[in-house]
Simulated scan of single mutants.
Amino acid sequence: MIELAERALPVLGFLLAMTIIAELAERCGLFALIADRLGRWSRGSVPVLWAGLVVVALAATIFLSLDTTAVLLTPVVLALAQRMSVDPRLFAYTCVWLANTGSLLLPVSNLTNLLSLSSTNSSTLDFLSRIWPAALTAAVITVGVLAIMFRRTLAVRGVVDDRPVAPANRGLLIGQAMIIIALAVAIVVGAEISLASLIAAALSIVLTAIVDRSLLRRLPLPWRMMLGVGLLLVVVEIARQLVLDAWFARFELPDSLSGSLLLAGLGAGLSNLINNLPAYLTLEPLAQTPALSASLLVGVNAGPLITPWASLATLLWAGRCRAAGVRIGWGDFALRGLLLTALVVPLATASLFLTG
């Protein structure tokens, strides 16, 4: 259990810190300002607007985690789509799909990445050098599928809305943006992730308290999520010690493309049956090599696109869509997600070997 605590505490600390950072960035108007600028720069061109959204969604996912894209970016871009009289489903699917398929590149992009980093004892640069081909492939395929599926939406012209959205306090917004940028740089150059994120969260709180203390009222802290993740880690660890590790010891996947494809497929399938976090923890004993570890991440990060419970980000995203009045049928979601998963998971996994 001591080893479990050593893995769990940094993950839980990171989850707490990133929730605070992302929430304060949203409260100071960062995401609303970005959406407003995208709308004004596009001048009614849906392809230009959507291209900007793709860049922002990937950046938010990579540097602030997939939950940030699902929870904080989704509502502002849906409001922008409705303001411009554009089918909001393109924007909704862009957010939820890139939140998942775009969460491979950095350890901070997804909790599964942090768990993988702790199990392999590798650095952020090692992680990045190993996973980048799959991350790039997954993002490119996702964007391509979105462009084909929503080609009619991309062919229309939206209503030009020149009403500017000014932040309540530009200095606070700039300060929060600088903290996020500094955190991203620190993580890329190899800083200890949980410590760097907690320091950044503390700086965000101090800055907000100095400039506008009212923004700290009822600041949502992810206590339930942290408790859920902690309990999940304990349950799966007990199951591994009692049954799973001994059972998986009978199997040894080959450190090859075939073994990687099998593990990635298992990860995607189990994620859609239960959830991607317990799916990763369950299958982790099979990821005995760096290639297999990366392939498992492809499956559990880019694969949970079919069922609404496959990732917490999707459930949170669905709630934001309902609040915005955007109806997404789960049958439609599953069929579209099945097609994307069937393309992304094997091709992103194969890319790990084509470049290595």
Rank of each mutant, 00 (worst) to 15 (best):
F248Q: 14
A249H: 10
A249W: 08
A249K: 13
A249T: 04
R250H: 11
F251S: 11
F251V: 15
E252M: 01
E252S: 12
E252V: 00
L253D: 06
L253R: 06
P254D: 08
P254I: 15
P254A: 11
P254E: 14
P254H: 13
D255P: 09
S256W: 04
S256G: 10
L257I: 14
L257Q: 12
S258L: 14
G259C: 05
S260K: 05
S260R: 06
S260V: 04
L261E: 08
L261G: 14
L262M: 15
L262S: 09
L263M: 09
L263G: 05
L263A: 07
A264H: 07
A264Q: 09
A264I: 06
G265T: 05
L266C: 15
L266V: 06
G267C: 08
G267S: 12
A268V: 03
A268F: 01
A268P: 03
A268K: 01
G269M: 09
G269A: 13
L270W: 09
N272T: 07
N272F: 07
N272V: 09
N272S: 10
L273C: 10
I274D: 02
N275E: 10
N275M: 09
N276F: 09
N276G: 11
L277E: 05
L277P: 10
P278F: 11
P278I: 10
P278Y: 12
P278V: 09
P278T: 06
A279Q: 10
A279S: 14
A279L: 08
Y280C: 00
L281R: 09
L281W: 07
L281A: 13
T282W: 00
T282V: 15
L283W: 07
L283A: 12
E284M: 06
P285V: 08
P285M: 07
L286H: 04
A287D: 09
A287E: 02
A287I: 06
A287Y: 03
A287W: 03
Q288L: 13
T289R: 06
A291W: 15
A291F: 12
L292I: 11
S293M: 15
S295V: 05
S295D: 08
S295L: 07
S295M: 04
L296W: 07
L297F: 08
V298R: 04
G299R: 02
V300Y: 00
N301F: 00
N301H: 00
N301E: 07
A302P: 03
A302K: 02
G303A: 03
P304Y: 06
P304F: 02
L305R: 01
L305H: 03
I306P: 07
I306T: 12
P308N: 10
A310V: 02
A310I: 03
S311C: 10
L312R: 04
A313H: 05
A313K: 01
T314H: 01
T314M: 01
L315K: 00
L315I: 09
L316P: 02
L316E: 01
L316Q: 04
W317E: 02
W317C: 02
A318N: 00
G319Y: 04
G319A: 00
G319M: 05
R320T: 00
R320G: 02
C321S: 14
R322K: 15
R322N: 02
R322H: 14
R322S: 13
A324C: 03
A324H: 01
A324T: 06
V326T: 13
V326R: 12
I328L: 15
I328K: 03
I328W: 05
I328F: 01
G329S: 15
W330S: 09
W330F: 15
G331V: 12
D332G: 15
D332A: 10
F333T: 07
A334T: 13
A334P: 08
